[in-house]
Design a protein around this nucleic acid. Structure first.
Length: 509
DNA sequence: AATGACTTCAACCGCGCAGAG
DNA sequence: GCTCTGCGCGGTTGAAGTCAT
C-alpha cells in the first residue's frame, strides 16, 4: 500500500524545493505554493484526475499523490465555489448532517462546488461554537419536519432496537425529502447525549435515517471513482450503546420545549443584577457538558451564546427566519442535552399535566435533577407513553406560546442574525425594536458573545428566586440552579450582557 | 504595542475499501 | 484467497489570522 508514512519531508522544506524534487525525491509537505498549484493544475488538465501518484512521478512536483488529490479537490478544481456558504447551503448542510452525520463527502456531493473538507471545517466550527454556547445543533425546521414525518410513519417505527433492521428494510428513495427521521432516537441520547462532534447527527437526531442515501443526486454528483462505504455510510448509529430507549420525538420535543426557553437559561444568568455561578451551571446542566463533550468546552459557560458568523459565512437571510420558520431557533434542540433524566414522579406528572405536559416534563426533569434515582425505571415505564404526549404537547406548546418569528437581529455588532447560525438567539418580534437589549457579550474566556437579545423574566427576582411560573419554565429553573445571585461572580458575569426576554412568552398552561 | 487566547482552515494522517494481479 | 496499489473518507493538527486584554 502506498503510504505517505515515512516519506517525511519537513515542512521546513521551503518553497524553493518545489519543482526541484521529482521522481523519488523527498516529498514536500505543508502549504502549497502557487508554483505547485500551477504544476498540478497543468498536469490534471492534461491527464485528467486520478492516478494521483503519477503526478509526482511525471512532474517535478514533490508531492505525494494524496496531497495532490487533496489540493486539487479542495482548491484547484475549476468547479469549486469560493466564498462563504449561502444560507441555502447552510440549510442544506444542516439537513444533510441531520441525515448523514459526519459524512462529509456525501454532503459535499449534495453541495456542488463545495468540498467535504470545507463542509467539515464549517460544521466543526459551528459545533464547537455551539458547544461553547451550550446551544443545540439543529434548527427547529429540520426537527419539526422529522417529527411530522415520523408521526406519519410511526406505524413503521420501532422504539428500541430495530435500527439496523429498520434501516435495512426501508426504501431508499426518499432522499429528496429533507427530513430527519427520529424513529429510533434513543432516550439515552437525550440524557447522555453523545459527544459532539464525534457523534453524527444520526446518533443525535436520526438514528433511523436510512433512506437518505442519495441515489441519483449523490451518484450524479459524486466523482465516479468515489466509493461509498459500507452500511455506515448510510447511517452509523449509536443504538448499540443504548439501552433504555424512547422514540424520537422526545428529543425533539424537548428541544422544542426548551427551545424558546433555552436562551433563558443563559439569560437568566444574565440578569444584570445577578451573579452567577458558572461552574455550578455547568454541573447542573450536567450530564450535559461534561458528559456531552468530554472536551474543554465543558468548562466553558453554557450560557454563553454568540452570534458570530463563521468567518466565511454570508449574512444573507436567515433560513430560519420567517415566514419559513415561525419557530425560534431549535438550536435549542440540544437543550435537551442539558436535560437530566426525569424522575418517575415527575414524568407521571408531566404526562398528566394539563399543560403541554412537555413543559412540565422538563420542569420536573429539572426538579428531579437532584433526585434522579428513579429515572431509568421511570423511563422504562413511561417511555412509550411519553412519546405521543411529548409530540402532541410540544405542538400545542408551540402553538400556545405563539412563537414569534425571528426578527432581524439588530445587533450593534452588526450581525444581522441573518445567518442560520445566529447562534441561539431567539429573537422575539419585540426584541427587534429594543436595541438597548443588544449588548455585546464579551469577556469570558474571550469568547465573543454577540448580539444577545434577551429579556429578564418577570418572575425572576433579584435573589435568583423564582416564582411558580418561573418554575414552570424548566429552562428558567435550570437557570436558577445555575445562577445564584448571592454569589459574586462578577468577573464571570462580564460576558452576560444581554437581557432575558421572558415576558414575551405566554404562560405554559 | 505587546501578549496571549482563541478561531479558522489548509493540510496531514490513518484507516479501510475496491480493484488488479 | 492473498497481497499490493490506488484512492477516498473522516479525524486531527498546526500555522496563520483575529481579537481581547
Amino acid at each position: 500500500m502506498m503510504s505517505d508514512n515515512g516519506i517525511d519531508s519537513p515542512v521546513a522544506d521551503d518553497a524553493d524545493s518545489v519543482g526541484t524534487v521529482g521522481g523519488n525525491g523527498r516529498l514536500k509537505k505543508g502549504p502549497w505554493t502557487a508554483a505547485e498549484d500551477v504544476i498540478l493544475a497543468e498536469y490534471v488538465t492534461k491527464h485528467g484526475e486520478g492516478n494521483w501518484n503519477a503526478v509526482q512521478k511525471h512532474t517535478s512536483l514533490a508531492r505525494c499523490g494524496k496531497s495532490c488529490r487533496l489540493r486539487w479537490a479542495n482548491h484547484l478544481r475549476p468547479d469549486l465555489k469560493k466564498g462563504g456558504f449561502t444560507p441555502e447551503e447552510e440549510h442544506l448542510i444542516i439537513e444533510l448532517h441531520a441525515k448523514m452525520g459526519n459524512k462529509w463527502a456525501r454532503m459535499a456531493a449534495e453541495l456542488p462546488g463545495r468540498t467535504d473538507n470545507e463542509i467539515k471545517n464549517y460544521w466543526n466550527t459551528r459545533i464547537k461554537r455551539r458547544q461553547r454556547a451550550g446551544l443545540p445543533i439543529y434548527p427547529p425546521e429540520i426537527c419539526l419536519q422529522a417529527l411530522n414525518e415520523n408521526q406519519q410513519k410511526d406505524s413503521m417505527s420501532t422504539f428500541s432496537s430495530g435500527d439496523a433492521h429498520f434501516r435495512d428494510v426501508m426504501p431508499v428513495n426518499n432522499f429528496e425529502i429533507p427530513a430527519v427521521q427520529f424513529k429510533n432516537l434513543k432516550w439515552n441520547q437525550l440524557v447522555h447525549p453523545p459527544a459532539f462532534p464525534d457523534i453524527p447527527a444520526s446518533g443525535l437526531l436520526v438514528h433511523g435515517f436510512h433512506s437518505s442515501y442519495p441515489n441519483k443526486s449523490l451518484l450524479s454528483t459524486m466523482h465516479p471513482s468515489k466509493r461509498l462505504r459500507g452500511s455506515e455510510s448510510i447511517f452509523h448509529g449509536s443504538s448499540a450503546t443504548m439501552s433504555n430507549t424512547i422514540p424520537c420525538g422526545s428529543q425533539y420535543q424537548s428541544g422544542i420545549y426548551v427551545q424558546n426557553a433555552q436562551p433563558f437559561i443563559y439569560s437568566s444568568a444574565y440578569d444584570h443584577n445577578l451573579t452567577s455561578d458558572h461552574q455550578s451551571c455547568s454541573s447542573v446542566l450536567a450530564g450535559s457538558h461534561a458528559t456531552l463533550n468530554g472536551n474543554p468546552s465543558s468548562s466553558e459557560p453554557t450560557w454563553a451564546t454568540k452570534q458570530e458568523l463563521p468567518s466565511l459565512q454570508t449574512q444573507a437571510d436567515n433560513w430560519c427566519s420567517p415566514p419559513s420558520s415561525p419557530l425560534p431557533s431549535l438550536e435549542s434542540a440540544d437543550t435537551l442535552i442539558q436535560t437530566p433524566p426525569p424522575s418517575e414522579h415527575n414524568i407521571s406528572s408531566q404526562l398528566s399535566s394539563q399543560n403541554s405536559g412537555l413543559l412540565d416534563a422538563v420542569l420536573n426533569e429539572s426538579h428531579s435533577m437532584k433526585n434522579p434515582r428513579n429515572s431509568s425505571e421511570l423511563l422504562r415505564s413511561h417511555a412509550s407513553g411519553m412519546v405521543v404526549n411529548l409530540i402532541d404537547a410540544s405542538s400545542q406548546f408551540i402553538h400556545e406560546t405563539g412563537w414569534e418569528p425571528y426578527g432581524e437581529l439588530t445587533s450593534p455588532l452588526h450581525h444581522s442574525s441573518s445567518s442560520m447560525f445566529s447562534e441561539g438567539t431567539p429573537i422575539s418580534g419585540n426584541s427587534v425594536s429594543e436595541p438597548e437589549a443588544v449588548e455585546a457579550i464579551t469577556g469570558y474566556n474571550r469568547v465573543k458573545e454577540e448580539a444577545a437579545i434577551w429579556r429578564v423574566p418577570t418572575q425572576y427576582n433579584n435573589k435568583g428566586e423564582t416564582t411558580n411560573q418561573f418554575f414552570s419554565r424548566p429552562d428558567l429553573l435550570l437557570a436558577s440552579d445555575c445562577f445564584r445571585p448571592d454569589e459574586d461572580h462578577s468577573s464571570k458575569n462580564r460576558m452576560l450582557k444581554g437581557r432575558l426576554l421572558v415576558d414575551d412568552l405566554s404562560p405554559c398552561s
